[in-house]
C-alpha cells in the first residue's frame, strides 16, 4: 500500500513547525510516531498534502518525573523505571497500548491526540465509498446514529484517562504563544468525533506536566478489550486516589474508549473527599458512572456490555486501591 504524494517537512523548532502549518493551513498534518496517522493515510482518510514531522524538535523530547515531552516514545515511557514507579496507573496504561512494536514508534503526544475511531471511518476508501462515505470523512451522514449533525467516533487513547486522573496539564504551543491547560480540558465532550479538541488545529502539544501531588496518589488503569495485545480499548478506566488515614483525600475517576472524548467524573468523586471508601460507596459511584456514559455501537463489543463493564471495572479498581479495612468486596 503506497501513500499518496505529500511534502514532508522536518522542522527543528516548535516555532518553525507552527510557521509551516500556518503556510499550509487546512492542508497539513503533524506527524508524531506515525502509528495512527500513517495507517489512516494508507486508507486515504482525510489526506493532507503537507506532513510536518515533529521528531526533529528537541524541545518535544525528554522524560522526567514532572514532565513528559510529547515526542516521548511510549516504549521509553514504559521502560522508564522512575516514572513507572511514581505513576503506576500511567505505567499500566502505557503497557497496554497496542503492541510493543507500535509503542516503539508511538508517542505520548500522539496517543493524547489520537484520531477518533469508528467502524465506518477506519476503513479503506473503497469500503467507505461503497457506503457513500461518512460524516467524519468526505460524507454527509453518520452511519452509527444516522443523522447529519454529530459524529460519534470514539476516543480510544489509553493515556488520556490515566494522566487525567493525576491532574496532569499539557503545555501547548499555538500561534498566539504558549499555554498550559488541564489535560482533561484538551477534550471537548460537547463536541463530537470530529470537533473533539478545544485547541486550534495548528496547536502542538509540547509536553505533559505532572504536579507533585500526582506522586502521592495510588493509581490503576483497567482496559477492556478482546486481546491483551493489538486492540484499542473498548473501555479504559483510570482511577487515582490519595487517602488520608482511611478516608479519601482526593479521588479521580476517568474513562476512555466509550465516547467521543475521555471523561472525568469530578462531580461524582469530589463529594467523597473525607469519606471512607466503603463497599457501598464504591457501588454507588460505579453505578452513577455507568448511568452517565453513553457508548454507541461503533467498536467490536456492543455498547450495553461496555456500559455494564464500566461499572464493574470502576468497582474493581476502587476495591483494589482501597485500604483493606474500608472495602470488603
Amino acid at each position: 500500500m503506497h501513500l499518496d504524494p505529500f511534502e514532508l517537512h522536518q522542522p527543528a523548532t516548535v516555532d518553525e513547525a507552527l510557521c509551516i502549518y500556518r503556510d499550509h493551513a487546512g492542508d497539513a498534518d503533524y506527524l508524531a510516531g506515525g502509528t495512527d496517522l500513517l495507517p489512516n493515510y494508507k486508507m486515504h482518510l482525510n489526506l493532507r498534502r503537507h506532513l510536518i514531522a515533529l521528531g526533529g524538535i528537541p524541545e518535544l523530547g525528554g522524560i522526567a518525573l514532572g514532565r513528559l515531552g510529547s515526542m516521548t516514545r511510549l516504549a521509553d515511557l514504559e521502560g522508564s523505571g522512575p516514572v513507572a514507579g511514581a505513576y503506576p496507573g500511567v505505567a499500566e496504561a502505557v503497557a497496554e497500548v497496542a503492541t510493543p512494536l507500535v509503542r516503539a514508534s508511538g508517542t505520548v503526544g500522539g496517543n493524547l491526540m489520537l484520531e477518533t475511531r469508528c467502524f465506518f471511518f477506519n476503513q479503506s476508501r473503497f469500503w467507505r465509498a461503497s457506503l457513500g462515505y461518512c460524516l467524519k470523512a468526505e460524507g454527509a451522514v453518520c452511519h452509527v446514529v444516522p443523522q447529519k449533525e454529530k459524529c460519534y467516533a470514539t476516543f480510544s487513547g489509553d493515556l488520556a484517562p490515566a494522566l487525567a486522573v493525576l491532574d496532569a496539564e499539557v503545555e501547548v504551543a499555538t500561534d498566539r504563544g504558549r499555554t498550559r491547560i488541564p489535560l482533561i480540558d484538551l477534550y471537548d465532550l460537547r463536541g463530537d468525533g470530529i470537533r473533539r479538541h478545544t485547541l486550534p488545529p495548528s496547536a502542538i502539544v509540547v509536553a505533559v506536566h505532572l504536579p507533585p501531588i500526582a506522586r502521592q496518589r495510588l493509581g490503576t488503569y483497567r482496559k477492556l478489550r478482546i486481546r491483551p495485545a493489538f486492540d484499542f480499548p473498548e473501555l479504559g478506566v483510570a482511577v487515582a486516589v490519595r487517602f488520608e488515614g482511611s478516608s479519601v483525600a482526593e479521588l479521580r475517576v476517568a474513562v476512555g474508549g466509550l465516547e467521543t472524548a475521555p471523561r472525568r467524573f469530578d462531580e461524582l468523586t469530589d463529594p467523597l473527599a473525607g469519606q471512607q471508601l466503603t463497599e457501598e460507596r464504591i457501588r454507588e459511584l460505579a453505578g452513577a458512572i455507568t448511568r452517565s456514559v453513553r457508548p454507541v455501537y461503533n467498536t467490536f463489543l456492543p455498547p450495553d456490555y461496555r456500559r455494564r463493564m464500566t461499572g464493574v471495572f470502576v468497582r474493581r479498581a476502587l476495591v483494589d486501591l482501597a485500604p483493606a479495612s474500608s472495602a470488603a468486596a
Partner: peptide, 13 residues
C-alpha cells in the same frame, strides 16, 4: 537497534 514497524515508518525519517 530498536525493533520498528517498517510499514509505518517514512524512509526519510
Amino acid at each position: 537497534g530498536r525493533p520498528t514497524l517498517s510499514c509505518l515508518t517514512l524512509a526519510h525519517l
